[in-house]
Design a protein around this nucleic acid. Sequence first.
DNA 1: ACGATGATGAAC
DNA 2: TTCATCATCGTA
Length: 186
Amino acid sequence: MKKILSSKFFDRGVLAVCPELLGKYLVINRGWKEVWFMITEIEAYDGQEDLACHARFGKTDRNAVMFGHPEHWYVYLCYGMYWMLNIVTGPWKHPSAILIRAVKSSTLKGTPSFIKEDKLDGPGKITKNLWIDKRFNWKKADKKSWLRIEDRWVIVKRYKTDKRIGVDYAGRWAKKKWRFILVNSQ
DNA sequence: ACGATGATGAAC
DNA sequence: TTCATCATCGTA
């Protein structure tokens, strides 16, 4: 089963989108092949107030996409080596995005041959394995895109929340449980 | 526990 | 122009 997400899916507050994004599929065209992975762990970054969010500096060249329309990719380089893949959420002009931290290949279809790992657990591992980089920044993640998100199978969903990783500098915002982890998936 | 590695934002 | 920082990861 394959279901295209409504264009309104991402046009909501980031904390409303997160629980629904878990269990959806990250779909990418590589060459003539299409591969997909279930999204199993994500983090919310919400607005200029959120001291862990890049938008805390106000609008800059790097984070400008977050201030724009939902359903666009925000891809940036972290620690000089790893690309971080984020999807912008709504509402328009409210800077927010979801970092995709972990995915796993579908047990229904198996792992594509060029992917060594069954689970890509870490935002840098996802982009490295799937060849995702700056080229996707600012691109819309709709059904025509080579990189998009789809609803493919209904799953029984349970998730937990926890603190976000790598943002200890953010004071009270570091304590917010804005990391969403799928449990008992499949 | 630590180094690789380079863009970014702020200060000067 | 310089500087500290950084939404990480593989190796030790």
